[in-house]
């Protein structure tokens, strides 16, 4: 059961979107968010939607998968909508004691909901089409200039890589410990929340102890393989920008500019 958890939810593929440089995809996601938050009026939102539909269709990610990502956030979406409908001042359409529904409120709620849906689906497209290791590489390279102000960029990305590497190992370990405790009569499934949380401590303590031991061994093994930080380190796969990367970046910049400008013009 725990095996099914995959961080970042990457779905391998070989489409143009999958093959793009992770740096370009990260910047594109950032531009998309900028466009979405500066969007005003139906044309700007329409452009963002068009952008999302285009990229999704090229990436061949199934529409059902995109919508699945929205499910856990359904409550927040509805909550935002209700709040906006009732608490925006303006031309009153309907009044019920202290609640007023305004024309502006409905419009604002509609835009907010569209904005959240576009935001979630758009950004999840990034993790659907980029492997975690590519993402960490991309982040490391994008943050590289920050090294000048002593931000430990390489160390952070190495930590992310190792964390990703150890997720399946630690999940397996958790299952083993849980089974061992169950075999000795531990009960994880019944009782109130507090009781269940308490029942987890005999799982968490051995898990932490073993994680520390693993970390220790890994550190020695890494030193034995000549690791001494990011200084002077080269890479097996050097990321390099192709023509497709530049075109995609230009495409995203145009869309962002259009989305921002359209709000001003219309």
């Amino acid at each position: 059961m725990l095996q099914d958890i995959t961080l970042g939810q990457y779905f391998p593929g070989s489409t143009l979107i999958h093959r793009l440089d992770p740096r370009v995809k990260l910047v594109a996601a950032f531009l998309y968010i900028v466009a979405l938050f500066s969007a005003q009026g139906p044309v700007a939102y329409g452009l963002c939607l068009l952008w999302l539909v285009l990229v999704t269709s090229v990436s061949k990610v199934h529409i059902r998968l995109m919508l699945k990502g929205l499910k856990p956030l359904l409550f927040i979406i509805i909550f935002t909508a209700v709040l906006n409908v009732f608490y925006t001042p303006g031309r009153i359409i309907y009044e019920f004691y202290f609640l007023h529904i305004t024309y502006e409120g409905i419009a604002l709620a509609f835009y907010m909901v569209v904005r959240i849906i576009l935001l979630i689906t758009g950004t999840s497209l990034l993790t659907y089409t980029t492997s975690p290791i590519m993402l960490t590489d991309g982040i490391e390279l994008l943050l590289n200039p920050l090294k000048k102000i002593k931000v430990p960029v390489h160390e952070l990305s190495m930590m992310m890589t190792i964390a990703l590497r150890f997720i399946p190992t630690l999940i397996e370990e958790t299952e083993k410990i849980m089974n061992a405790q169950k075999a000795r009569g531990a009960d994880f499934e019944s009782g109130r929340l507090i009781r269940r949380i308490k029942a987890l401590s005999p799982v968490l303590i051995p898990l932490f102890v073993s994680a520390f031991r693993r970390a220790d061994e890994l550190a020695v093994a890494m030193e034995c393989r000549l690791y001494r930080g990011g200084e002077g380190r080269t890479r097996l796969k050097e990321l390099s920008l192709t023509r497709a990367d530049y075109y995609s970046l230009a495409f995203c910049l145009v869309f962002t500019a259009l989305a921002i400008l359209s709000g001003k013009i219309f």
Partner: peptide, 18 residues
Amino acid sequence: NQIVATVVEEDVAFAPEN
């Protein structure tokens, strides 16, 4: 406890990269 990367070839490349 001695494999660093999430892909076999990336792990083998670890020492030469260093």
